[in-house]
Amino acid sequence: MADKIRGKVFVVGDNIDTDQIIPAQYLNLVPTIPDEYEKLGSYALCGLPDSYPRFVPAGQMKTPYAIVIAGRNFGCGSSREHAPVSLGAAGVEAVVAESYARIFFRNAIATGELYPVECATRLCEELKTGDEVELDLTARRLCVVGRRREYETQDLGEAKAVIDHGGLFEFARGTGMMARN
């Protein structure tokens, strides 16, 4: 359960599709097998054009960026749950985007892998990769460390509780909708 996430941001633009988040040749990795889950993380965002810096440094399994900042329609394209899973496995705790594609948004919540936060401000034009920020999920704001400017983010509503629990199934058990096994 997280209420404040502090770390470096990685900034991308509009319409980042699931092929860029996790290219199809890595979909043979099954997320429920632990070492394949780790591997998925190492490939997160490797489908981005080469003009971007590397999201996960060569030879490493985790990203130095805790938060991804994006424009509109983040996660469009395929229904592959490998997309939020690869970001979560790489160590991403939240994405802050102007808007999301429906299936990605839902998968992020159902897996509990990361908080898909919306922000009406076009943060992808305000922030730079490497900026250090603090995202406060309860107070619903994002601030850049060392700068005065604060950005309001939108309420995650009930989705926050699902992610806090660690995803759909844990939430269902935690709230008595499903028996514990």
Binding site: S78, S79, R80, E81, I103, R106, N107, A110, L168
Partner: peptide
């Protein structure tokens, strides 16, 4: 429901068809 985003194809038959992820599908 289908674990593929193009499950929406089947709306052609006058049904509600939509793509979902693995966790939802397991549910």
């Amino acid at each position: 429901f289908g674990t593929d985003s193009h499950t929406c194809t089947h709306g052609a038959f006058g049904e509600f068809a939509t793509g979902i992820g693995n966790t939802d599908a397991a549910f």
